[in-house]
Each structure stands twice: as structure tokens, then as C-alpha cells.
């Protein structure tokens, strides 16, 4: 039996509100605002209050998928990543670094954006990296 609150940051706009995720025995059971946070000050909007509802949604992707005809088949991580590395490598070899593009993400963390641009710039040697900042 374990109940705690994990403090994190809301994902539903740029305000940067604090979110306490109530975790009971390894599952999220609710959300509390944080009264001591300088921006959200103990409040949230309806999106913030419900920020964790999709985390265990049945539609969540739980395994890598590889295209098969019109649909997908499940694949192992090794197979999927190998396939990406291999095919991207082939395109790189045939058409050069500028034929590959990367979309970073305004929804992912700073560290993840850093790593993706580092991958694009150091391994593929392209500056073709952008995200939907403008959208």
C-alpha cells in the first residue's frame, strides 16, 4: 500500500502550472493543484484537472509497429529501430544528409529535444530540424 503525490508540470499549454499526480500503488488516481506554485497558485483549469486521464487509455501505443500493406504489424524494439536505422542509412547513402528531416516536439521535454537535434546534427549532419512552434 503506497500513496504519494508526484509533482510535475502540466502539458496542456505554456503556462507551466504545477500538477500533483496522486499515485496509489503505482497507478494515477487523481490530480491536485499545488498551492505553493508561483503561477498556478493552487488552481488549475479543466484540462489540468484531467491531465492524467489519457495515460492508461486503451488506444495508447504499447508496442512498435511496422507497416504491412495498408496496416501495421507489431514488431520488437530491436527490429523497429534496426529498420529505421537501416532505411534512413540507405536514404542517407543514396541522397545525402539533406534528404532527411526531423520534427522535434513542443510536447516533449527539453532533454528530448536536445537529443533529437543532436542526433540530426551529429549523425545525419543536417540542420533539417524544426517543430510546430509556429502552429
Amino acid at each position: 500500500m503506497q500513496y504519494e503525490n508526484v509533482r510535475t508540470t502540466c502539458i496542456y499549454c505554456g503556462c507551466g502550472c504545477a500538477i500533483n499526480l496522486q499515485v496509489l500503488d503505482g497507478e494515477i488516481v487523481g490530480v491536485f493543484p499545488d498551492p505553493q506554485h508561483p503561477i498556478s497558485r493552487g488552481s488549475l483549469c479543466i484540462k489540468g484537472w484531467n491531465v492524467a486521464s489519457f495515460v492508461r487509455h486503451p488506444d495508447r501505443l504499447a508496442t512498435p509497429l511496422v507497416r504491412q500493406g495498408e496496416g501495421f504489424r507489431e514488431a520488437s524494439w530491436d527490429e523497429a529501430l534496426q529498420l529505421v536505422a537501416e532505411r534512413m542509412g540507405a536514404i542517407y547513402a543514396a541522397s545525402g544528409p539533406q534528404s532527411i528531416g526531423f520534427l522535434a516536439s513542443a510536447k516533449c521535454t527539453n532533454e528530448e529535444n536536445y537529443l533529437l537535434q543532436k542526433l540530426a546534427r551529429t549523425i545525419v549532419r543536417t540542420n533539417n530540424i524544426d517543430h510546430c512552434a509556429r502552429l
Binding site: M1, Q2, Y3, E4, R7, N20, Q22, F32, H37
Partner: peptide, 10 residues
């Protein structure tokens, strides 16, 4: 360190 919130002390 990160803040104050409800908790089940055991």
C-alpha cells in the same frame, strides 16, 4: 525538496 502534498505515512 520539490514541494508539499498529501502522503500516506507508514
Amino acid at each position: 525538496a520539490v514541494g508539499t502534498a498529501p502522503y500516506l505515512f507508514r
